[in-house]
Write a protein that binds this DNA or RNA. Structure first.
Lengths: 148, 148
DNA sequence: CAAGTATTGTTAGATTTCTTACTATTTTAA
DNA sequence: TTAAAATAGTAAGAAATCTAACAATACTTG
C-alpha cells in the first residue's frame, strides 16, 4: 500500500479536529467544576498537575495561548483557589504558578476520568499497536518542534 | 516497553499543540493571500478542494466551527471570489459551497507548499514508519468518532 | 392532511482569544 | 558602568468563535 506525505497530514488534521473537543468536553460535563471555567482552565490545571511549579510564560506557551490571553486565565484560577502565584527570588519578572490542594483534588478527578475515557476509546488497539502509535507520534512531534 | 493509555493521550495532545499552528502559519506567511483571511478560511478552501461541492452545515462540522460562526466565514470567501453558493434544487434549505477557478488556483498553491512542508518534516521517517503512523491514527480517529 | 418535530442557515449578543503597546526587570556588550 | 536588547507580564481594543433564538423548509406520524 502506497502512502504519501499528504496522507499523513490528512490523518493528523482529522485527528486533531475530533479528539481534543471530545476529550475536554467529557471532562467538563462529568466533573463538578465552576461554570466560569472552560477548556483553557482545565488544560492549565492539567499541565501544572503533570509538570509542577512552572513560570507563566512557559505555561501559556505549552497550552498555546498568547501571553496576553493567559493573564486573565491565571487570574481566574487564582481567584477560584486552584492555583497560587509565587514570585521568583532571583528574577523579579517571573511568577511561578502551582496547584493548591483544591487544584490537586480537582486534577485527580480529571485524571481518573481521563483514564476511563482513553481506556474506552482504545480498547480495540492491541498493546503493540498502541506502542507503534505512540512512537510514531512522538517522532513526528519531535520533528515538528525542531523545525519550527 | 510498557505503555499505558495516558501515554497515548499525552502524545496526541502534544502533537495537536505543535503541528497545526506551525502548518497553517507556514501557509499564511508564504502565500499571496488577502489580509482578511485567516486559518479558518484556508481550512475551508482546503476542505472544499478535497471534497468538492459540499453543503454548508457539513463544511462547518468538518472544520469544527459552529454553524453560527461559519456563516460569516463563507460570506467572506464568496465576497473574495474563492467560492460560490449553489442552492439545492430539491431541498431549499441547503446551500452547497464550491470553489471557483480563483479558489482552485489558490488551493493548488497551498497544496504545493503543504507537500514541501510535510516532506521536510517527515524526512526522517521510513516508508514503513509512515504507514504505521497513518494506520494507527486512522484507527484512533475512527474510534473517537464512533463514540462521540 | 395536519400538527408537531427536526434540520438548515442567519442573526445578535456574550465570551474567548489575539495583537499591539507598555512597564518593569534582567541580560548583554561596548 | 551604562546603553541597548531581551524577557515577563499587564492592559486595552480588535477579531474570532460560541450560544441561543429565530425563520424557512422538510420530515413524521396520527
Amino acid at each position: 500500500m502506497k502512502t504519501n506525505n499528504d496522507d499523513i497530514f490528512k490523518s493528523i488534521i482529522e485527528l486533531q479536529h475530533t479528539i481534543m473537543s471530545a476529550f475536554y468536553k467529557r471532562f467538563l460535563d462529568n466533573l463538578d467544576i465552576p461554570d466560569q471555567m472552560n477548556q483553557t482552565h482545565i488544560r492549565t490545571l492539567h499541565y501544572l498537575a503533570i509538570k509542577g511549579s512552572t513560570p507563566m510564560h512557559k505555561v501559556s506557551k505549552r497550552i498555546s495561548l498568547e501571553k496576553g490571553s493567559f493573564t486573565p486565565v491565571a487570574k481566574k484560577l487564582i481567584e477560584l483557589g486552584y492555583i497560587v502565584r509565587i514570585k521568583d527570588a532571583n528574577d523579579k519578572r517571573i511568577s511561578f504558578l502551582e496547584l493548591t490542594d483544591a487544584g490537586k483534588k480537582l486534577t485527580d478527578g480529571i485524571h481518573k476520568l481521563h483514564s476511563q475515557y482513553v481506556e474506552e476509546k482504545t480498547k480495540v488497539l492491541t498493546g503493540e499497536e498502541k506502542e507503534l502509535l505512540i512512537s510514531g507520534m512522538n517522532t513526528l512531534t519531535a520533528l515538528m518542534k525542531k523545525c519550527r
